[in-house]
């Protein structure tokens, strides 16, 4: 009885130490990437190559989901707003919810599952097949050569992807409410334009997506670098990337929103 109690407390302590250690390692790893990224930014071809795999290849999923999210928002918003006779406000609803929240958050979630997991698997497999160690033997720094370009590709492409997501969403909302249901196009756009503020809404959404980009890219490269060098370890690391990214994105979103939109309107 007593033994079981101590062992359960021990497991809590073990888990806590493990997570704290991992968090500290991730922070040091992040600073290490920043310190060593000068080399990879000077050889921009490396980042370019990763931008293709991380950014361009994520385009399809981001654009299509953005379109559908906007269409659903349009339908649902119209359904509710028409009860109050203010169905022209659907443009405002779609644009505000996309630009402020859904654009950055959903794009980051999709990005983490599409590109983040791929980055983790790639780096983890390189580690498992000892390619990273081989690079170290040849005096090529694996963090500068492999990790930093992927990190910067993630950071650069995230804001662009979020913006494209929002634009496709607004277009989807327009398609459903104006073309399909028949809300007046003029009031759709004018209500949207008079209620969306450049500094307050669009710049804040952009800042959010930059934060998410840094978070997702850091988590993805860290989990890959930290993965146990086995087939099972790589698969676990990939899962951890997606789960941790999702949790960090949503938590960070709440904190950022609390700082940005404190009911000042």
């Amino acid at each position: 009885m007593f033994k079981r109690l101590t062992s359960s407390i021990q497991s809590i302590g073990h888990g806590f130490i493990e997570y704290t250690w991992q968090f500290g390692f991730a922070c040091r790893f992040f600073i290490l990437i920043l310190l060593k990224s000068a080399v990879s930014l000077r050889r921009f071809g490396l980042v370019m190559r990763e931008l293709y795999f991380v950014g361009v290849m994520s385009l399809i999923i981001i654009l299509v989901s953005g379109l559908f999210v906007g269409m659903v928002l349009g339908l649902q918003g119209y359904e509710t707003l028409q009860k109050f006779g203010s169905e022209t406000a659907v443009g405002t609803l779609v644009a505000l919810s996309l630009v402020r929240e859904l654009g950055p958050v959903v794009a980051a979630l999709l990005f983490a599952s599409r590109a983040g997991s791929a980055i983790t698997a790639e780096i983890g497999l390189m580690k498992a097949t000892e390619q990273l160690a081989a690079m170290g033997m040849m005096a090529v720094d694996p963090i500068a050569r492999i990790v930093a370009p992927r990190f910067w590709a993630g950071v650069i492409s995230m804001p662009f992807l979020a913006a494209m997501f929002s634009v496709m969403g607004v277009f989807g909302g327009y398609l459903v409410t104006v073309v399909y249901i028949g809300v007046d196009a003029g009031s759709f756009w004018s209500q949207m334009q008079s209620n969306v503020d450049f500094h307050y809404d669009i710049v804040n959404g952009f800042i959010k997506s930059c934060f998410f980009g840094v978070a997702v890219a850091t988590i993805a490269v860290f989990q890959g670098y930290d993965a146990a060098p086995t087939a099972e370890g790589v698969s676990r690391a990939t899962t951890r990337t997606v789960v941790t990214s999702a949790l960090v994105i949503l938590g960070l979103d709440f904190i950022l929103t609390a700082f940005m939109f404190r009911g000042v309107s």
Partner: peptide, 16 residues
Amino acid sequence: LGIGALLILSLKVGNL
């Protein structure tokens, strides 16, 4: 495309 999307957001949606 990304910069274009940001421009559309600020000009068409935000009415800058």
